[in-house]
Write a protein that binds this DNA or RNA. Structure first.
Lengths: 343, 343
DNA sequence: CTGAAAGCGCTTACAG
DNA sequence: CTGAAAGCGCTTACAG
């Protein structure tokens, strides 16, 4: 049986094969199959039948050689093991969608040698453009202005303001989360954030602080608690908060993992969520948010929309229209059981 | 500044450009750059300098047109939002590695229309071979025997035994987990499994049962408890077990999420892990295993090794050597705090 | 050692 | 309406 896979594998059909089967020239086949005019209907039908019979698939490489475009864009990610670049890629794929553009995905795993390697591989395959997805929300080094194809930076913006970047609106996310707490009738609200070195952490806090200020309120304790993006930090921070501010009635968290830890610590301290204290996360990480007790209200960054917008901006750039600057995608509130109107 | 990105973008240099700068023919440039013999050292140096100066990158598409090989393989995944296909891809990338092969990743998201679309896109780009990564460990429908390029199925084997498949050894994983429990001095061991419709669930239980039988033991309760791949199920199952078999001293779980739920329920029931009861997961999902209390001992499926082996088998298949059948990758024990010698 | 020519699979003016 | 020819960027015998 081995040979059924090997020796018999047919060389893919070419225009020439179709032409000789249909009894016409390869030029005519090309025109017929590409819907060009000036081909008799009967001829076109005959060509199509021949192509069908031979399972003819045009060689996109040969096409690209002529057209100068390959219908392929690269997506250079740094955190595939993380969960951010995947939705971005899906959004980009959707935007290129039914069209004839394909996405060529590589992961540099935070290694700049590997990044260079992939970049070279992509460019030598003559991609039409490139989307670079960062591994955090912090700005990343630009690839420079002398790239042979347009580049769009997604999730992490480029350090060069003359590049095209697409990010999630973290300030807005903080505002939306805080407003939701206020809408639930909470007023003594604390913020447990992640690693202070992340722009995103500070931006979310900034948005929340502004939303509270708009109603004349401050964060409980005066400012956010910064720590790590882990459940362990969420648990520890809650214990600190409960001893210092036993009367708090809402906790905003910088990530779903932090919120998950917070929920566990609150339950173990005998506090009721959401009756006593409401809790919000950030990320809408399904596996975490849906499995916590109670299920977690959170902010969805709409990463697929980030990818979709990046793809659109890349497309217009390929067509020569460079919309440089940082484009921001609005986030979305997702309510589950951990927030509710105060009794 | 917009124009600095647009109008000035240089057409990539071609052999012709290098040839005229170096003052030789394009044939000579090709030979010089590809290390062919019969080129004078001085000429080669001059060509290399010219290529360097123009940042010449050979057009891989044009090369592929000649060679019949493109140096690109496709990887068709179904669960990118999941966490299984990414490590498989990384392993495959490593295997193709420093060489000149690139991986073209697409995600069908469990949609067969999309799968066909991607398949067509990949084939029209003349990939040299294809790796298909399933979304579960259950066998998946073969793509058939008349594919124009070799195909290797990874994680989920193909339904056709004459295809080439690479899977994780689930029976062995169950055995390793149970043996570890036994090595920790446990003898009253229960098994909380996931969805019974998954082959992997049953295979892991089978391996564990066999390992216990080898020492004359049975699972507590006589058989495994099947449910869902969730924390919620892990919690519920533990409560059931504790009421029926209060003296159990070890719990094997079908996944890290189930184990995470089990740990939470045990702690809330006042049982000490690992002193009183040892717990094992499966998957080595870092985010879950490292954050649970205590950190979770578990089984690593070595998915990167699955990807690496799939890539190697694909390579040998491209060279005409079809090693059909299902190849199995051994799993690995990872010990953290949730297992220890019984006091 | 170097270069002219043919050809990979396709498209596109240009003749007929 | 149809086809012969040139050309996209490259490599590979084959002459010189």
């Amino acid at each position: 049986m081995r040979d059924s896979h090997g020796a018999e594998r047919a060389r893919p059909a070419t225009l020439k094969d179709v032409a000789s089967l249909a009894g016409v020239s390869i030029a005519t086949v090309s025109k017929a199959l590409n819907g060009r005019e000036h081909v008799r209907a009967e001829t076109r039908a005959r060509v199509q039948a021949a192509a069908e019979k031979l399972s003819f698939q045009p060689n996109v490489l040969a096409k690209g050689l002529l057209a100068g475009r390959t219908g392929t864009v690269g997506l250079l990610a740094s955190d595939l093991d993380g969960r951010f670049s995947i939705p971005v890629m899906m959004g980009a794929e959707d935007a290129f969608g039914a069209g004839s553009t394909s996405v060529f995905l590589c992961d540099a795993r935070g290694d700049s040698i590997r990044e260079q390697h992939h970049l070279r591989a992509l460019l030598s395959r003559r991609i039409d453009g490139l989307i670079v997805v960062g591994d955090t929300t912090n700005p990343r080094e630009t690839l420079g202005r002398d790239m042979p194809v347009p580049v769009v930076y997604a999730y992490a913006p480029s350090t060069d303001p003359e590049d095209i970047s697409v990010v999630s609106d973290n300030v807005g996310a903080g505002r939306i989360a805080a407003d939701h707490m206020l809408d639930c009738g909470r007023s003594r609200i604390a913020y447990i954030s992640g690693d202070v070195s992340y722009h995103a952490a500070r931006d979310r806090v900034e948005g929340a602080t502004a939303a509270l200020a708009a109603r004349g309120l401050n964060l409980v304790g005066g400012e956010a608690l910064y720590g790590a993006w882990t459940e362990g930090w969420g648990r520890g921070a809650v214990r600190t908060l409960l001893s210092r501010n036993p009367d708090l009635d809402g906790i905003l968290c910088g990530s779903d993992q932090i919120a998950r830890g917070a929920l566990d610590a609150l339950r173990e301290a005998g506090r009721d969520v959401p009756g006593d204290i409401a809790v919000m996360g950030h990320d809408n990480w399904e596996q975490i948010a849906a499995q916590s007790r109670p299920p977690l209200s959170t902010i969805d960054m709409r990463l697929e929309e980030v990818g979709r917008l990046a793809a659109e901006l890349l497309f217009t750039a390929i067509d020569g229209d460079y919309r440089v600057g940082t484009h921001s995608v609005a986030t979305r509130l997702v309510t589950r059981g951990s927030t509710a109107l105060a009794g």
